[in-house]
Design a protein around this nucleic acid. Structure first.
Lengths: 156, 156
DNA sequence: TACAGTATGACAATATATTGTCAATTGGTA
DNA sequence: TACCAATTGACAATATATTGTCATACTGTA
C-alpha cells in the first residue's frame, strides 16, 4: 500500500559516479597543479603520450568520450604551453596530428610518476578482482548508454 | 627490465567513471529536457523533494558534494522557473530554506516517473548484488578521497 | 557582554564542456 | 568529372562548476 516508488538498483551507483567524478577531478587538479596541468589538460596529454600513432583532435575526442570542441580548446592550451604541437597529416590536410614536444614528454612522465603511487595508495586493501568487476559493470552500462544515444544523435 | 610502469588497478575504473559521468549527464539532459529541466537542475530538485526536512543552499551542496556556489546558481534558476522557493529559516536569518512549489512537486514526480523505468531498463540482466558491490567500492574510494582532501582544504 | 571562529550567501572571475553553425576537406558514387 | 554525404576544425553562445573575496549571521567562550 506504500506510495513510495522503489528506485532502480542502479540509482545509488549513479550518485556515487557523480560524486567520485567530481572528487577525482579535484584530486587530479591538486596532484599536478605545479606542473602547469589540470585534470582536463592532463587527460588529453595522457592520450597523446600513450597512443601508438598520433591522432587528430577529433580522434582524441572520440578516444576519451568528449566532444571535438572541448578537446580542441584544451589542445590549444597545451600548444600554448608548449606541451604538444601540430604535425601535418599526410592523409588529411585539415585534421593535423597532435604530437608531444620534449617538454610535454617530460611533464607527462612527471605526472605519471605521481599518479601511480597515488592511485595505488588509494586502492590499498581493495581486491583487484573487485575493482575489475566494478570497472566492467560501469563499462557495460556505458556501452548501453552510448549505443542508445547513437540512435538519437549523430555526434557524441 | 621493462621500462613500462604498471598502472594502478584503479586507473581503468577511474576512466570508466569519467566517461560514465558524462554519458549519464547527457542522458539525463535528454530525459527531462521537455520538463524545463537539466541534469544539474534535476539533481538539486531531487534533493529538495526527497529530503525529510527543508535544507539551506549550503546544506544541499554538502548533500550532493558540490560547492555552495554551484548549488546557489542552480537554485536561483529553479526559483526563476517557479519550481522551488525560499522560506524563512527560524534558526538562521541568512540561510533560508529551499522548499518545493506545487509546480516543482509535479515536475519532480514527472521526472521520477521517467527515471525509474529508464534506469531499470539500463540495469536489465545485471545482478543487484554486483551493482551494490560496485557502488560500495566507489563509496570506499570516495570516502578516502574526501578524507584526504579534508586535511588540505576547508571547503569541499 | 564582548570577542573570536565558523558558516552562509552574494558577487566576480575563470575553467570545463556542450550545442549550434559554418566552411574546408575527404571519400564515394553516379 | 560532378555531385553528395560525412568528417573536421573554427567560432560563438551557453551551461556547469570551481576558486577567491567579502559582508553578514550565528556559535561558543572568556
Amino acid at each position: 500500500m506504500s506510495k513510495m516508488h522503489a528506485a532502480a538498483p542502479l540509482t545509488p551507483l549513479f550518485i556515487s559516479v557523480f560524486r567520485l567524478n567530481g572528487a577525482l577531478i579535484a584530486a587530479g587538479d591538486r596532484l599536478v597543479a605545479d606542473l602547469d596541468l589540470t585534470s582536463a589538460r592532463w587527460q588529453v596529454l595522457g592520450v597523446v603520450a600513450n597512443v601508438p600513432a598520433p591522432l587528430s583532435v577529433a580522434s582524441i575526442a572520440r578516444t576519451i568520450g568528449l566532444t571535438r570542441q572541448g578537446v580542441r580548446g584544451v589542445t590549444a592550451e597545451l600548444v600554448a604551453s608548449g606541451l604538444v604541437e601540430f604535425k601535418p597529416n599526410p592523409h588529411h590536410r585539415r585534421a593535423q596530428l597532435v604530437v608531444l614536444t620534449d617538454k610535454g614528454r617530460e611533464v607527462e612522465h612527471a605526472a605519471r610518476r605521481r599518479q601511480i603511487p597515488w592511485a595505488t595508495a588509494l586502492g590499498k586493501g581493495l581486491k583487484p578482482r573487485h575493482i575489475e568487476e566494478a570497472a566492467m559493470l560501469l563499462q557495460t552500462v556505458l556501452a548501453r548508454l552510448e549505443r542508445h544515444s547513437d540512435t538519437q544523435k549523430d555526434e557524441l
